[in-house]
Amino acid sequence: MKRRSVVSGMMVKLAPPVAFGVFVVGFIQLGLAYTLLNFKPMQLPPPSAVASAFIENFQAIARDSLVTVGPTLAGMIVGSLIGYLTAVFITRFPKGGFGLLYIMIAINSVPIVALAPIMNRWFTQPFPAKVSVVIIISMGAMAVNAFRGLSDLPDESRHLMRACDASNMEVFTKLRIPASLPYVFTALKINVSVAMMGTIIGEYFNDNTSGIGYMIKYTLRIGNRKAEGWAYILAAAIISILIYAALTLAQRRLVRWHASQRMGA
């Protein structure tokens, strides 16, 4: 019985996004987007053209996606970890660590148009060049969010811990870290899009002549392969949605106690 409810639950959950997707695709495909919004089919190819380009080039797209996913995940994980550890440091040593957050924001604010070429100078290999771009742009969101999460304790629990004479370490592991998790997941979710974009733009500049970013640049800067370019954008979207979905599942397992997970749908 339970399994059946899971399946039907899935159906209920998937129906709205699918319906919306069908609506958007139909809106463009039937030409409404072109007549109502003045979009040009050459610039935004109709979904059918993108789909057939996607199928036609599926092998190449899969290969290029692999090139892009690696540095995205690696950079996102390392960057988020650095961001989190920074937040821990600042929470633990509020006086001494205060300035660190600003340094992090500063590094985080280096425009990506400058960051990607700089990292390309530092690392001649494409992989570390891309990973380092993603690390730098994804640590800020995590640091800001985790810092808030670590210091945002329900007062009752803090008083309770204090009353129990808990050590700082215990407050950290039992209280602060769990309290930070909802914020951590929000930061991770933001970082999915940030990291993918970081890799894509990194690929505009690196040595590789492969990867989603390189192919987007290659195909969108000439006139007769736009549908292929949009097929690559579609691939990037699918990948990011998959990573996002995985994070949502992980959040559901790890943060069961939290209000956001208890309400149900």
Binding site: M42, Q43, G223, N224
Partner: peptide, 26 residues
């Protein structure tokens, strides 16, 4: 794309590259 969208009336492109746009329907 700028000329196609009437942001500009005249554009500079490689002739080779212009060919790809002509093929793409511009």
């Amino acid at each position: 794309d700028q000329v196609e969208n009437d942001v500009a009336q005249v554009g500079v492109l490689f002739y080779s590259s212009l060919l790809t746009y002509q093929e793409g329907g511009y």
